[in-house]
Each structure stands twice: as C-alpha cells, then as structure tokens.
Design a protein around this nucleic acid. Structure first.
Lengths: 130, 130
DNA sequence: GGGCAATATAGCCGGATTGACATACTCAAG
DNA sequence: CTTGAGTATGTCAATCCGGCTATATTGCCC
C-alpha cells in the first residue's frame, strides 16, 4: 500500500488508470491519447504493473493492459478511519468554509491528557503570513 | 486534489496524519513520536498546511495542529468510480483473469450474476478523431 | 529470411524532494 | 529588556523521478 500513493501521485499514471477504467487497451492506444511518448508510457505501465495496479495480456505483438483494482481497495481501506470525520459533519465543514463561524467539530478528544482548555475556537484560517 | 496524492505518498506525512486522527497535537508532541527532527516535522506540517490537510491553532508559543479531512474526501471521491470494480465482484474479477490459477477459491457462488463484461475493449480505440 | 509493427529497455538530464544542521522568529515570564 | 521554550525558515547533500532519444526485442506477414 505504501507505494500505491506514490504511484497515484503522478498525473500521467492516474490518467492511464482512468483510461483503463472502461476496459483493457493496448499500449499504442494509450500512447495516442496521452501526450507522452511510447517509451514513457511503457515505463509508467511497468511501474503500474509492478505495483499490481494493472495486468497484461499478450496478443501477438500487442499487449492489452487491464486495470487491477485491488491496490486501490487498500487505499480505500487506509482512508476508512478518516472517512468518519467528513461523513460525520460535512455540512458543518462547508458552512465553515463559507462563512467562517467560529467553532467546528464537537469532538474534542485531546489525545494527551491535558485538555488545553477552551477547546478550539479556530478562526485563524488561511492567513498566509509571508 | 492532484497534489494530495503526492503529499500522502510520504510515509512520515501519513504518520503525522495518523497521529492527528485522535485529536489536535502541538508540534513537540509529534516530534516526540516521530523519529524525525523538529525542523523536519515543521517542514512536513507546512506542506500539510498548504495542502489544507491540517489546520493550526496558536496557543502562546505552542501551535496545535489538527486534521482537516476535506482533501481526503476528495481522494475518496476520486476513488469512487473504481470502487465499484472491487465491491462488485472481487472474486469474479480474479477468475476473469486469463488463466490465473492462484485464486483457487473453490466455492464461487456467484453463478452468473454479473459477468463484469466480456465486452471490455472498445477496440475502436484508435485515435483518429471521430 | 526480410521487413514492418508493436512494445520494452537503456541511458541521460533537469528538476523536485527529503533529511539534517544551524539559525531566526515569537511569546511569556521575570 | 533578557531569557528560554516552542516553532519556523534557510541551506546543503543525497536521492529519486519523469521525460526524452536511441536501440533492442518480439512476432506477424510477404
């Protein structure tokens, strides 16, 4: 799983996966739609293959690549514990972005032990301080 | 979203997020548990901050960092179209692989439920614009 | 077998990134 | 105003990565 994030970090690779979502394709087809050269695409495919994100089927000279979603499932699993956080209060978050009220998540479980005190009251937001 | 994958690609950063999952923490606390130096942690926090993955609250000299799940939600959204692929039929997909004897799951009860495709391959794939 | 089509591999380069160290900044307490 | 805690920033070395060009490999077809 660790490396899957690194692999998805590249836009070209995500694009390849997106293309393969509709079904398997030969390399040349991918090259046609991506603005990359064939060797570059092959290199990406190698990376994806070694990560288990795609699978190849050989048909004469042509090699049909197909998506293998399993590693993505692991990413999904990694996300699981976090998912609660936005499922829990999505609207509250949006409201927060829009108007910046003053307070947010009601759950303050300070990990340490010393509840700092008043809880939150974040309003600092995006103050880019140069 | 694009950059969120790149940010999650770093194990230290994922570790930081994991630590923040239980609640906000000051920098020193993170430094204590990560085997990194304080400047390095601060640097990672800066990256996370600029990506909107964490948020800071200042309390005297101490800065409490807190998780902001929204970018993770976007990752989740990106995953959505793929999710069907494994949720729908993981075993069937593996069986569908050409001749992979590895599956060996003797009792596939999904008789003919939903052959994932058969079609796949829109071979019209050639790039010539329609 | 020769030639062509399709893909993979090798090698190179520029740029980005991570880590540590040293240093600057900020705030509260005397 | 000085000090010390807490954190941020700057710099440097090492490493990794994505893209390209050139070349090797494989397999059909004549």
């Amino acid at each position: 799983m660790a490396s899957t994030f690194a692999i998805l970090a590249d836009p070209s690779r995500r694009e390849i996966l997106d293309l393969l979502r509709t079904g398997e394709r030969p390399v040349g087809d991918l090259v046609d739609r991506l603005t990359l050269t064939q060797p570059t695409v092959s290199k990406h495919l190698k990376v994806l293959r070694e990560a288990g994100l795609v699978d190849v089927r050989q048909d004469a000279q042509r090699r049909w690549y197909r998506l293998r979603p399993q590693p993505l499932a692991e990413i999904d699993a990694w996300l699981a514990p976090y998912r609660r956080m936005w499922e829990h209060s999505l609207d509250a978050l949006e409201r927060h972005l829009d108007t910046m009220p003053e307070d947010s998540t009601p759950d303050d479980s300070t990990p340490n032990d010393s509840t700092p005190n008043g809880t939150t009251a974040d309003d600092s937001a995006e103050g880019t301080t140069p």
